[in-house]
Structures are given as structure tokens and as C-alpha cells.
Nucleic acid binder design. Structure first.
Lengths: 197, 197
DNA sequence: GGGTACATGTAATCAGTTACATGATTTA
DNA sequence: TAAATCATGTAACTGATTACATGTACCC
């Protein structure tokens, strides 16, 4: 899943290594965008933007920051009273790493790990009727999801200048639309029997 | 990631449990489609069909069948000579489990975990020029990928009746096309500055 | 018969995930 | 002040991934 290794050189002692993956960069990127954050802040921010195409579980957003802090990419402050939240900020190193990541080209193939598609590709094992039924189910599901995205997108449109988030919604819409087109094509022109490749 | 639990009742002793995930069903589904298979057969079959949208690492296809065999969903035969390959077949139970899975509706939201998109959503951290550059890179990548899919698709078209595999390719094409449209739209109409949500 | 590509496995690691448990704050 | 919601964490598990290591068959 594309994971970068980073050597950390402390003043003394041997260098340690940390692995940086998508969740690491989401944390870095979000803090870069919205400033010093608690894990909960991150969760909210994720929900409002990237979660349209990539959802990061809450727990990850609690686990990852301390890990990054230990590597010196973030600094941690803790509130004195109340919930004593842990607030994380980018260090200079952290910002450098983030910038380098943003600069670097991304050529990893993206997969659409969709269970519905998976079933369809084994669909010849079932009846043509079942395939049709399955296609209609999937169609409906993606239509519903598109509707949600459309609503969100329209809500965002009311505030001019919110483009960067909209853009992720927009990809969500295109994504769902592609599925809708696909399942429609399956319904209109169902696959024939599988001649055992 | 949608994982089913299955209780296994042996003749004697307490029932054991096995977790079934996508890789489990790919193995079951493939063996259901192409018959008794070695892990290598599975790997080949996966490569020719589902890998267009979901790639399963080779090692998984070696690890999963024994696991399923232990749970009684597959039976294992081993060649006497030569490579002494392990050939796995569906048991009755295995076929039942597969059929039930194929019958069941799939309502898990599919994500397009795309690093390029992720970077874009943090793009406001960099310069507008870099965003454009990034968009062009992504565009090219998806165009290349689409070209590959097109070629495959055409090759498949030469043999009439191969529809069920083609269908997965077709989704791959749509998927890439959606990305292409998206990145084109980003280039034509770049996002404005981020007003810190 | 020597080299190369094909094929088969395993071991170790670890990120991601689920599930659980508790605490703080608000509101009715 | 009780209930509900919001928020914060942690523990444990395990599937997936990487990397390695070896073996077999084929081809020149």
C-alpha cells in the first residue's frame, strides 16, 4: 500500500526507523491544513473531506499521532484541565516530510475493491435471474449513495470558495456514477454463460 | 472489511470458528468456476479476471486454501510426484457457503483509496502550479492504464462468449475513465484556495 | 547440462480493524 | 440529577503484505 521508510537521527544513539503509510500522511496533511489538532478534530476533518473516497477508522487517528510524535514529526501538548486532550502540531521535520510527500509523484494503482463486482465475476455460478437481481440491488445502492453526495455537494455550493473539499465530493459523485453506468449496462446487456476460461 | 463468521461443527468436540473475508470468497468462487485448483491456478485465474479491480497477493492464495480446507470448505489432494502440488476442491459445505455468499446482498460501501486524490485534498498546502502538475501526472497515469484495459478488452472481444471476464475489464475501463474525467476537470477548473474549513 | 523462467511455499511482521471501556459535557 | 451524547482512549487480534528461500521444468 505504498509505505515509506524514514530514518530518524537523534542527537545521540543509533538511528531508528518509522514506516509512513496513508494514515500517517492523512494525519500530517490534516494538521498541515487545519493546524494543531486533537485526534477528534482529525476525525471530524476526515469525515468532511477525504472520507468520501477513503475512510480512516477513528482508532487509527488516535494511534497514529503518538507514533508520529515519537518519530519527531509531530509535537504533543496536553490540555491541563477538563478532558486533557492531546493536541498535536507539525514539527519542522513533520512539515518537511509532508511537503516531500506532496511533491512526490504517486503512481500506485488504485483498486476499487467492490464486493458486488466480485460476486458478479462469479455470477455465472448462479442463475441469470439472480445476476439481474444483483445488478438491480447494486444499482439502487449506488444511486442512493450518489444522492447523498449530490446533497452534500449542493450544501457545499452554498458557500462560495469551498472548492477543495468539494473536489473530493465531486470524485465521489463520478465514482458512483461510473458504478451506476456499469450496473445499468449489466442490466441492459447481461453477461452470457461462462465457458470456463 | 465485511468478514463473516462461520461456526464449524465437527462430529465430536466443541465447534470451532472461521472468519471468511474477500480472499476466502475469491478462493471459493474461483474453484467454483474453474474447478479443482492449485494456488498457482488461482493466481492465474485471479490475474485474468478480478485483478482488474482487486488484486490478491500471491501468498494469500497459498495461505488461504489450507485455512479453508481445515474448516472443511475445501478438500486437499496432493500430487504423488513432481512438484507435489496441492490441489483444492470444493466440498459440499464449501459450495453451500459460496452459494449463500453469492445470494446475499452486498451493501458495503466501496472506497477508491487513491493516493493521488488524497494529495489533491491537501493540495491547497502547495502551489496552484504544483496542483496542475499533479493533475497532469495523474491524468497521464490513468490514461495509460485505460489504454492497457482497452487492449485487453479488445483481445477478449475476439473470442465471442467471453463476456463474464470482459465485464470486469469493462468496470476497470469505466473506473479509469471516471478518474480521467475528474483530473481533466481539475485541470480545466482548478480548485481555489482553502479557507481553512 | 547449465541457465532461466516458472512455480511453490513459509516466516515474520505489522497496520488496520473491531471491540471494549471509561470519562466529560450537555440538555431536559 | 439522570440520561443521552460526545469524546477519548486502549487492548488484542489477525489478515494481509513483504521478503525470502527453495524446487522443478523447460529450452538452448
Amino acid at each position: 500500500m505504498t509505505r515509506d521508510k524514514l530514518e530518524i537521527h537523534h542527537g545521540d544513539g543509533p538511528p531508528t526507523e518509522i514506516n509512513l503509510g496513508p494514515s500517517s500522511y492523512v494525519v500530517l496533511g490534516m494538521i498541515g491544513r487545519i493546524g494543531p489538532s486533537t485526534p477528534y478534530d482529525l476525525k471530524q476533518a476526515v469525515l468532511k473531506s477525504v472520507a468520501f473516497f477513503w475512510d480512516f477508522p477513528q482508532s487509527q487517528l488516535y494511534v497514529e499521532p503518538p507514533r508520529l510524535a515519537e518519530a519527531g514529526l509531530l509535537s504533543e501538548d496536553r490540555e491541563e484541565f477538563g478532558r486533557r486532550r492531546r493536541v498535536f502540531s507539525l514539527t519542522e521535520l513533520g512539515r518537511t516530510v509532508l511537503d516531500e510527500w506532496l511533491e512526490a509523484p504517486s503512481d500506485t494503482a488504485t483498486e476499487a475493491r467492490d464486493v458486488g463486482l466480485l460476486k458478479l465475476s462469479f455470477g455465472a455460478l448462479t442463475s441469470p435471474e439472480r445476476i439481474l437481481e444483483h445488478a438491480r440491488e447494486q444499482l439502487k445502492m449506488h444511486q442512493d449513495r450518489l444522492a447523498v453526495h449530490n446533497a452534500t455537494s449542493q450544501r457545499l455550493n452554498e458557500y462560495p470558495g469551498l472548492r477543495p473539499h468539494q473536489i473530493t465530493v465531486s470524485m465521489g459523485e463520478r465514482f458512483e456514477q461510473a458504478f451506476i453506468d456499469f450496473w445499468n449496462s449489466v442490466i441492459e446487456d447481461p453477461p452470457v454463460e461462462d465457458p470456463t476460461l
